[in-house]
């Protein structure tokens, strides 16, 4: 059993595979985000009936559905470790960076699955302009990464608290407001017919937000995880 110089990437991948395996077996987080997302979308589409919403409302509606669906499942990744009592074994075995990156990647995969299901349904149910779908994809990608990078650290913070679910949304909301406002504004512009070139400033902000959140979370996670 010779020790290998397995790098951080291998350990992150090990962490991710373990979490994916656990999720595929109990489907707890996946069921939570999908059920919330689809139910909310169905309620919205039934309420709208045949009426067409203006683009600025469509953008807001889409990201409200994404935000609350994310809130219902993204915290689970750390809550599962604390509730099942496996967090101690993980703290004693895994470097904090590998834990954080592995769980961030897991949350990104989870939210990507939700996005792949919700987005086409949203376009069908709300009559959103399909011509904007192509230029909407980069915003979706940055939105998913932004949401996950902002909430994964908060998930680690609230995992040890008594009132986990409520605290997750309360703590995440102020951090996510700049992200959500930008996503809504950008989506609105795209639904109104603007091209990607007209939302470059917003794209730059989304990229900067993502970088700041990931770097900040990586620097802070060790203290949240081990203290």
């Amino acid at each position: 059993m010779p020790p290998t110089s397995a790098g951080l990437a291998t350990k992150c991948l090990t962490m991710l595979i373990k979490d994916l395996r656990l999720e595929l077996r109990d489907k707890y987080a996946l069921n939570a985000v999908l059920m919330f997302g689809i139910t909310t979308l169905a309620v919205v589409s039934f309420s709208l009936g045949q009426s067409n919403l203006p683009p600025h409302l469509l953008g807001a509606l889409f990201w409200i559905i994404m935000f609350f669906s994310a809130m219902s499942g993204l915290a689970h990744i750390f809550i599962r470790e604390e509730d099942s009592g496996t967090a101690l074994a993980l703290r004693l075995s895994a470097p904090p960076d590998a834990v954080f990156i592995g769980k961030l990647l897991f949350n990104m995969i989870l939210l990507t699955v939700l996005t792949l299901i919700i987005t086409p349904l949203f376009f069908v149910f709300t009559n959103a302009p399909v011509s904007s779908l192509g230029s909407f994809i980069p915003i979706l990608v940055l939105g998913v990464i932004g949401l996950c990078s902002a909430t994964t650290l908060i998930a680690a913070i609230i995992a040890r608290a008594a009132v986990k679910g409520a605290l997750f949304a309360v703590l995440s909301f102020p951090i996510i407001i700049p992200l959500l406002l930008t996503l809504v504004l950008t989506t609105q512009k795209l639904f109104e017919g603007s091209g990607v070139s007209n939302v470059m400033t917003e794209l730059q902000f989304l990229i900067a937000y993502m970088v700041v959140m990931i770097v900040g979370s990586l620097m802070l996670f060790k203290f949240v995880w081990t203290e």
Partner: peptide, 9 residues
């Protein structure tokens, strides 16, 4: 898992 996460085979 607990062996690989420590960087061992």
């Amino acid at each position: 898992f607990f062996t690989s996460i420590r960087g061992k085979n």
